[in-house]
Design a protein around this nucleic acid. Structure first.
Lengths: 129, 129
DNA sequence: AATCGTAACAGGAATCATTACTGATTAGGA
DNA sequence: TCCTAATCAGTAATGATTCCTGTTACGATT
Protein backbone atom coordinates (compact mmCIF):
# COMPACT_ATOMS: atom_id res chain seq x y z
CA UNK A 1 0.00 0.00 0.00
CA UNK A 2 1.33 3.42 -0.93
CA UNK A 3 1.10 5.98 1.84
CA UNK A 4 1.18 9.72 1.58
CA UNK A 5 4.45 11.51 2.09
CA UNK A 6 5.35 15.17 1.95
CA UNK A 7 8.52 14.32 0.04
CA UNK A 8 6.74 12.42 -2.70
CA UNK A 9 4.11 15.11 -3.05
CA UNK A 10 6.77 17.77 -3.42
CA UNK A 11 8.52 15.72 -6.09
CA UNK A 12 5.33 15.27 -8.09
CA UNK A 13 4.40 18.93 -7.64
CA UNK A 14 7.71 20.06 -9.02
CA UNK A 15 7.55 17.67 -11.96
CA UNK A 16 4.06 18.88 -12.86
CA UNK A 17 5.17 22.50 -12.69
CA UNK A 18 7.97 22.21 -15.21
CA UNK A 19 8.42 21.25 -18.85
CA UNK A 20 12.15 20.84 -18.47
CA UNK A 21 12.32 17.03 -18.20
CA UNK A 22 14.62 17.25 -15.18
CA UNK A 23 17.07 14.71 -13.84
CA UNK A 24 16.93 13.26 -10.33
CA UNK A 25 19.61 15.72 -9.28
CA UNK A 26 17.59 18.69 -10.57
CA UNK A 27 14.47 17.43 -8.84
CA UNK A 28 16.51 17.12 -5.67
CA UNK A 29 17.72 20.72 -5.89
CA UNK A 30 14.17 22.00 -6.26
CA UNK A 31 12.56 19.81 -3.63
CA UNK A 32 15.29 20.91 -1.24
CA UNK A 33 13.95 24.45 -1.32
CA UNK A 34 10.73 23.28 0.31
CA UNK A 35 12.16 20.41 2.31
CA UNK A 36 15.78 21.19 3.19
CA UNK A 37 16.32 17.86 4.92
CA UNK A 38 15.26 15.68 2.00
CA UNK A 39 17.91 13.23 0.87
CA UNK A 40 18.92 12.37 -2.67
CA UNK A 41 18.18 8.72 -1.98
CA UNK A 42 14.61 9.63 -1.15
CA UNK A 43 14.27 11.46 -4.45
CA UNK A 44 15.61 8.47 -6.34
CA UNK A 45 13.41 6.03 -4.45
CA UNK A 46 10.26 8.06 -5.06
CA UNK A 47 11.02 8.74 -8.70
CA UNK A 48 11.48 5.01 -9.29
CA UNK A 49 8.31 4.25 -7.40
CA UNK A 50 6.29 6.83 -9.31
CA UNK A 51 7.66 5.61 -12.62
CA UNK A 52 6.83 2.01 -11.73
CA UNK A 53 3.29 3.08 -10.84
CA UNK A 54 2.98 4.86 -14.18
CA UNK A 55 2.44 8.25 -12.59
CA UNK A 56 5.50 9.73 -14.27
CA UNK A 57 7.76 8.76 -17.16
CA UNK A 58 11.44 7.95 -16.99
CA UNK A 59 13.60 8.06 -20.08
CA UNK A 60 17.25 8.47 -20.93
CA UNK A 61 18.91 11.06 -23.06
CA UNK A 62 22.29 11.53 -24.69
CA UNK A 63 23.92 12.57 -21.42
CA UNK A 64 23.57 9.10 -19.97
CA UNK A 65 21.44 10.37 -17.10
CA UNK A 66 17.80 9.54 -16.55
CA UNK A 67 15.21 12.25 -17.04
CA UNK A 68 11.66 12.41 -15.72
CA UNK A 69 8.41 13.79 -17.05
CA UNK A 70 5.06 14.20 -15.32
CA UNK A 71 3.26 14.20 -18.66
CA UNK A 72 2.39 10.54 -19.13
CA UNK A 73 0.31 11.02 -22.26
CA UNK A 74 2.02 9.78 -25.43
CA UNK A 75 4.09 12.62 -26.81
CA UNK A 76 7.43 12.97 -28.50
CA UNK A 77 10.74 14.59 -27.65
CA UNK A 78 13.33 16.58 -29.52
CA UNK A 79 16.85 16.30 -28.13
CA UNK A 80 19.61 18.68 -29.14
CA UNK A 81 22.73 16.74 -30.05
CA UNK A 82 24.84 19.69 -29.07
CA UNK A 83 23.56 20.96 -25.72
CA UNK A 84 21.34 18.05 -24.71
CA UNK A 85 18.24 20.18 -24.16
CA UNK A 86 14.99 18.22 -24.36
CA UNK A 87 11.83 19.79 -25.74
CA UNK A 88 8.36 18.44 -26.33
CA UNK A 89 7.30 18.08 -29.94
CA UNK A 90 3.79 19.45 -30.51
CA UNK A 91 2.61 16.80 -32.93
CA UNK A 92 -0.21 14.33 -32.66
CA UNK A 93 0.88 10.79 -31.78
CA UNK A 94 1.21 8.33 -34.63
CA UNK A 95 -1.89 6.31 -34.04
CA UNK A 96 -1.29 3.28 -36.16
CA UNK A 97 2.34 2.39 -35.72
CA UNK A 98 1.98 0.02 -32.78
CA UNK A 99 -0.23 -2.18 -34.94
CA UNK A 100 2.08 -1.72 -37.91
CA UNK A 101 5.11 -2.79 -35.89
CA UNK A 102 3.15 -5.67 -34.41
CA UNK A 103 2.92 -7.29 -37.83
CA UNK A 104 6.65 -7.87 -37.90
CA UNK A 105 7.43 -8.89 -34.33
CA UNK A 106 6.32 -11.76 -32.19
CA UNK A 107 5.10 -10.55 -28.86
CA UNK A 108 2.75 -7.89 -27.65
CA UNK A 109 3.36 -4.18 -28.21
CA UNK A 110 2.07 -1.87 -25.49
CA UNK A 111 3.35 1.48 -26.69
CA UNK A 112 6.16 3.39 -28.30
CA UNK A 113 8.47 6.34 -27.92
CA UNK A 114 9.70 8.65 -30.64
CA UNK A 115 12.72 10.87 -30.17
CA UNK A 116 13.94 13.38 -32.69
CA UNK A 117 17.58 14.44 -32.79
CA UNK A 118 19.14 17.57 -34.21
CA UNK A 119 20.25 21.01 -33.16
CA UNK A 120 18.02 23.33 -31.19
CA UNK A 121 17.47 26.98 -32.08
CA UNK A 122 19.73 28.21 -29.30
CA UNK A 123 22.67 26.16 -30.50
CA UNK A 124 22.10 27.15 -34.13
CA UNK A 125 22.04 30.81 -33.13
CA UNK A 126 25.25 30.65 -31.15
CA UNK A 127 26.98 28.77 -33.98
CA UNK A 128 26.25 31.61 -36.40
CA UNK A 129 28.19 34.14 -34.43
CA UNK B 1 43.80 10.54 -37.94
CA UNK B 2 42.34 7.14 -37.18
CA UNK B 3 44.81 4.31 -37.42
CA UNK B 4 44.19 0.64 -37.79
CA UNK B 5 44.07 -1.51 -34.69
CA UNK B 6 43.40 -5.18 -34.26
CA UNK B 7 41.24 -4.40 -31.24
CA UNK B 8 38.96 -2.02 -33.09
CA UNK B 9 38.64 -4.36 -36.05
CA UNK B 10 37.65 -7.21 -33.78
CA UNK B 11 35.02 -5.03 -32.09
CA UNK B 12 33.48 -3.99 -35.40
CA UNK B 13 33.62 -7.56 -36.70
CA UNK B 14 31.73 -8.85 -33.71
CA UNK B 15 29.12 -6.10 -33.88
CA UNK B 16 28.51 -6.80 -37.57
CA UNK B 17 28.13 -10.51 -36.90
CA UNK B 18 25.35 -10.21 -34.37
CA UNK B 19 21.82 -8.86 -34.18
CA UNK B 20 21.80 -8.89 -30.41
CA UNK B 21 22.49 -5.18 -29.75
CA UNK B 22 25.18 -6.02 -27.19
CA UNK B 23 26.49 -3.94 -24.32
CA UNK B 24 30.13 -2.94 -23.92
CA UNK B 25 30.57 -5.80 -21.46
CA UNK B 26 29.20 -8.33 -23.94
CA UNK B 27 31.41 -6.97 -26.71
CA UNK B 28 34.34 -7.29 -24.32
CA UNK B 29 33.56 -10.94 -23.57
CA UNK B 30 33.47 -11.79 -27.27
CA UNK B 31 36.52 -9.79 -28.32
CA UNK B 32 38.41 -11.48 -25.50
CA UNK B 33 38.09 -14.83 -27.25
CA UNK B 34 40.23 -13.54 -30.12
CA UNK B 35 42.36 -11.11 -28.14
CA UNK B 36 42.69 -12.37 -24.57
CA UNK B 37 44.73 -9.37 -23.41
CA UNK B 38 42.24 -6.74 -24.52
CA UNK B 39 41.09 -4.44 -21.75
CA UNK B 40 37.58 -3.25 -21.03
CA UNK B 41 38.76 0.34 -21.28
CA UNK B 42 39.90 -0.29 -24.84
CA UNK B 43 36.48 -1.64 -25.72
CA UNK B 44 34.78 1.42 -24.25
CA UNK B 45 37.18 3.82 -25.95
CA UNK B 46 36.70 2.22 -29.34
CA UNK B 47 32.95 1.93 -29.05
CA UNK B 48 32.75 5.65 -28.23
CA UNK B 49 35.07 6.47 -31.07
CA UNK B 50 33.12 4.38 -33.57
CA UNK B 51 29.84 5.87 -32.41
CA UNK B 52 31.24 9.41 -32.71
CA UNK B 53 32.39 8.60 -36.24
CA UNK B 54 28.93 7.30 -37.09
CA UNK B 55 30.16 3.81 -37.87
CA UNK B 56 27.99 2.25 -35.19
CA UNK B 57 24.98 3.33 -33.14
CA UNK B 58 24.82 3.71 -29.38
CA UNK B 59 21.50 3.76 -27.58
CA UNK B 60 20.19 3.07 -24.12
CA UNK B 61 17.59 0.61 -23.01
CA UNK B 62 15.55 -0.02 -19.90
CA UNK B 63 18.46 -1.65 -18.09
CA UNK B 64 20.34 1.65 -17.84
CA UNK B 65 23.27 0.29 -19.83
CA UNK B 66 24.34 1.44 -23.26
CA UNK B 67 23.83 -0.91 -26.20
CA UNK B 68 25.54 -0.86 -29.58
CA UNK B 69 24.44 -1.71 -33.09
CA UNK B 70 26.51 -1.97 -36.27
CA UNK B 71 23.42 -1.37 -38.39
CA UNK B 72 23.45 2.41 -38.85
CA UNK B 73 20.55 2.56 -41.27
CA UNK B 74 17.37 3.97 -39.76
CA UNK B 75 15.44 1.12 -38.21
CA UNK B 76 13.32 0.62 -35.13
CA UNK B 77 13.62 -1.44 -31.98
CA UNK B 78 11.26 -3.46 -29.86
CA UNK B 79 12.25 -3.72 -26.21
CA UNK B 80 10.66 -6.24 -23.89
CA UNK B 81 9.62 -4.56 -20.66
CA UNK B 82 10.01 -7.83 -18.84
CA UNK B 83 13.33 -9.33 -19.90
CA UNK B 84 14.90 -6.33 -21.63
CA UNK B 85 15.57 -8.17 -24.89
CA UNK B 86 15.97 -5.86 -27.88
CA UNK B 87 14.81 -6.90 -31.33
CA UNK B 88 14.78 -5.13 -34.67
CA UNK B 89 11.37 -4.23 -36.04
CA UNK B 90 11.08 -5.15 -39.73
CA UNK B 91 9.12 -2.10 -40.81
CA UNK B 92 9.99 0.62 -43.26
CA UNK B 93 11.10 3.89 -41.68
CA UNK B 94 8.51 6.62 -41.35
CA UNK B 95 9.70 8.88 -44.11
CA UNK B 96 7.84 12.05 -43.37
CA UNK B 97 7.94 12.48 -39.62
CA UNK B 98 11.15 14.50 -39.38
CA UNK B 99 9.53 17.19 -41.53
CA UNK B 100 6.27 16.84 -39.60
CA UNK B 101 8.01 17.31 -36.27
CA UNK B 102 10.02 20.19 -37.71
CA UNK B 103 6.84 22.23 -38.10
CA UNK B 104 6.40 22.44 -34.35
CA UNK B 105 9.94 22.89 -33.09
CA UNK B 106 12.50 25.60 -33.62
CA UNK B 107 15.80 24.11 -34.62
CA UNK B 108 16.98 21.59 -37.14
CA UNK B 109 15.97 17.95 -37.05
CA UNK B 110 18.53 15.48 -38.32
CA UNK B 111 16.85 12.18 -37.57
CA UNK B 112 14.72 10.19 -35.21
CA UNK B 113 14.52 6.98 -33.26
CA UNK B 114 11.44 4.91 -32.60
CA UNK B 115 11.31 2.34 -29.84
CA UNK B 116 8.40 0.02 -29.19
CA UNK B 117 7.77 -1.40 -25.75
CA UNK B 118 5.85 -4.47 -24.74
CA UNK B 119 6.37 -8.13 -23.95
CA UNK B 120 8.32 -10.42 -26.23
CA UNK B 121 7.13 -13.85 -27.31
CA UNK B 122 9.48 -15.65 -24.93
CA UNK B 123 8.16 -13.78 -21.90
CA UNK B 124 4.54 -14.27 -22.96
CA UNK B 125 5.15 -18.00 -23.37
CA UNK B 126 6.75 -18.40 -19.98
CA UNK B 127 3.95 -16.40 -18.34
CA UNK B 128 1.36 -18.84 -19.66
CA UNK B 129 2.82 -21.80 -17.85
C1' DA C 1 -5.44 7.82 23.77
C1' DA C 2 -1.88 3.85 23.85
C1' DT C 3 0.03 0.24 21.00
C1' DC C 4 1.56 -1.99 17.00
C1' DG C 5 3.09 -2.96 12.25
C1' DT C 6 5.18 -1.11 8.53
C1' DA C 7 5.95 2.41 4.78
C1' DA C 8 8.88 5.95 4.42
C1' DC C 9 12.66 8.72 5.87
C1' DA C 10 17.84 10.70 6.31
C1' DG C 11 22.40 9.77 5.97
C1' DG C 12 25.89 7.36 4.26
C1' DA C 13 28.17 3.30 2.24
C1' DA C 14 28.28 0.28 -1.68
C1' DT C 15 27.74 -0.85 -6.51
C1' DC C 16 28.31 -0.60 -11.20
C1' DA C 17 28.93 1.50 -15.77
C1' DT C 18 31.88 4.51 -17.75
C1' DT C 19 35.82 7.64 -18.20
C1' DA C 20 40.45 9.32 -17.30
C1' DC C 21 45.24 8.64 -16.36
C1' DT C 22 49.98 6.48 -16.96
C1' DG C 23 53.63 4.42 -18.94
C1' DA C 24 54.48 1.01 -22.67
C1' DT C 25 53.61 -0.36 -27.50
C1' DT C 26 52.89 0.08 -32.45
C1' DA C 27 51.02 1.69 -37.01
C1' DG C 28 52.34 3.99 -40.80
C1' DG C 29 54.33 7.89 -43.17
C1' DA C 30 59.04 10.34 -43.96
C1' DT D 1 64.81 2.26 -40.51
C1' DC D 2 63.18 6.07 -37.61
C1' DC D 3 59.91 9.13 -35.57
C1' DT D 4 55.80 10.24 -33.41
C1' DA D 5 51.18 10.32 -32.52
C1' DA D 6 47.57 6.93 -32.00
C1' DT D 7 46.59 3.09 -29.39
C1' DC D 8 47.12 -0.13 -25.89
C1' DA D 9 46.77 -2.64 -21.00
C1' DG D 10 46.13 -1.87 -16.49
C1' DT D 11 44.29 0.66 -13.02
C1' DA D 12 42.42 4.55 -10.52
C1' DA D 13 38.78 7.86 -10.46
C1' DT D 14 34.18 9.51 -11.31
C1' DG D 15 29.41 9.84 -11.08
C1' DA D 16 24.72 8.06 -11.23
C1' DT D 17 22.03 5.03 -8.84
C1' DT D 18 20.93 1.60 -5.37
C1' DC D 19 21.25 -0.47 -0.93
C1' DC D 20 21.66 -0.59 4.13
C1' DT D 21 20.89 0.92 8.97
C1' DG D 22 18.74 2.97 12.43
C1' DT D 23 14.84 6.20 13.08
C1' DT D 24 10.30 8.46 12.38
C1' DA D 25 5.53 8.70 11.85
C1' DC D 26 1.15 7.18 9.44
C1' DG D 27 -2.86 4.67 9.99
C1' DA D 28 -5.27 0.79 11.70
C1' DT D 29 -6.88 -1.63 16.00
C1' DT D 30 -8.02 -1.76 20.38
Amino acid sequence: MQRYSRQRESIVDYLRSTKEHPTAETVYQHVRVQLPKVSLGTVYRNLSQLAAAGEILRFSSIDGVDHFDADTATHYHFICNHCGRIQDVPMSPLSDIDRLAGIGVRGEIDGHAVTFYGHCDLCLDSAEQ
